[in-house]
Design a protein around this nucleic acid. Structure first.
Lengths: 211, 211
DNA sequence: ACGATTATCCCCGAATTTGGGGATTGTGGG
DNA sequence: CCCACAATCCCCAAATTCGGGGATAATCGT
């Protein structure tokens, strides 16, 4: 299996080059500090898999992944990075990466991930996998099926203001009713939503689009 | 760790019950042929994790997952099934499952998956992981960059529990730190997020995917 | 016309949160 | 070696929320 490496840090690039080349079954097809020249390098190196850093001067690893994936749909691209932000994970996977491993991964695991990707798997560092799964949960639900909590109009209004971060007093003010009435509505909301605190109510309202 | 099992096939249910109960560190909180009565069973069994079959008479495992996840956002649900269709995988993960393991998994791997899920991982059978990643690539490419609030690890944890609806006391308990420390973290979170109340913090965290 | 529901308001006591201080370790960088 | 910063804990006082009562008036459906 031929591996092409894009990594701007020379020390890391060299270390990985040695590691890859020393591994039986793997062959270092090339190693460059950035993927600007990928259009020439890929045909020249004929890699089976690309290890791609995210932060590189010249051309962003995610953009490069998108471009390469569009041009070579069957080519496996694995992101190799220190970033754990959901945003980057999401964009990298959408761009066509099949794996996402963190740089603190041990050499043995890194090799395993490469082989995993080549074998049709999806190597994701554990913490990454969890974040990726969480991203699904934020997606527009295929089958809405929003439960009916039967909140009255005023209760819904109250909940809306609560989600905006207002306190009981401020809500009372905004709705031109007394503080006590807000309290009453909140009690009803808590019963109907099966929650016992403002935070739970806000979380439930946002997650289920009640606002 | 307490595990609740929903599986309609009596033979499989019994076998898994025995396996789970025989595993050190695991405790079988309950085992039922379907999740119709989950509203009563979950408070009664107080599980840390649920193993959920997909095809069950009475109530579909995915729908049940959606409902349970809406009501108990912090509860880990792992799908246990024979289905490998992308459609079911997608819907299950969107519904709130954190893992998806196939029934041909060995007992040892199944136990490992359960522990993985409880530890905050996302146990996916290899072929499932690849399919899940492919689903991302079919998605539109939105996702603007999220601002960096520079929350420390512990502050992020605190925020996560806050979004789950826990009080300061409960968070202190869960994180094995004192109430006062939680207070300190909350003060920092408020400063960094530019909010002044729990509700605002929760709303901001959810809306900007900080959790 | 009667019961159910909605919208409004009130009290008390207990629990929780918030703001504004301080303090002590340990760690990593310059 | 010193400084910044993360992680941990503490106190006080004020503001806010929560649970469990109760009450009045209007509306609505059968």
């Amino acid at each position: 299996m031929r591996v092409l490496l894009y990594e701007d840090n020379a020390a890391i690039r060299d270390a990985l080059s040695i590691l890859l080349d020393a591994t039986p079954g793997l062959e270092l097809a090339g190693a460059y500090p950035n993927p600007v020249q990928w259009m020439r390098q890929i045909p020249a190196c004929r890699p089976d898999l690309i290890l791609m850093d995210i932060e590189m001067p010249g051309l962003d690893g995610i953009q490069a992944t998108r471009a390469i994936h569009a041009d070579h749909p069957g080519l496996n691209i694995v992101m190799l990075t220190v970033f754990e932000e959901e945003d980057k994970i999401f964009r990298a996977l959408c761009a066509g990466a099949v794996g996402y491993v963190l740089k603190n991964t041990t050499p043995a695991r890194l090799i395993a991930s490469i082989e995993d990707a080549y074998a049709g798997g999806a190597p994701l560092s554990p913490s990454i996998a969890r974040k990726a799964v969480k991203l699904f949960q934020q997606l527009p639900t295929p089958a809405p099926a929003t439960p009916n909590y039967a909140l009255t109009t005023r209760e819904q209004e109250t909940l809306k203001y609560l989600v905006e971060g207002l306190s009981y007093k401020m809500i009372a003010d905004r709705m031109n009713i007394s503080y006590e009435t807000v309290r009453t509505y909140m009690k009803h909301i808590y019963e109907k939503l099966h929650v016992v605190s403002m935070t739970e109510a806000v979380a439930k309202a946002l997650r289920e689009g009640l606002v």
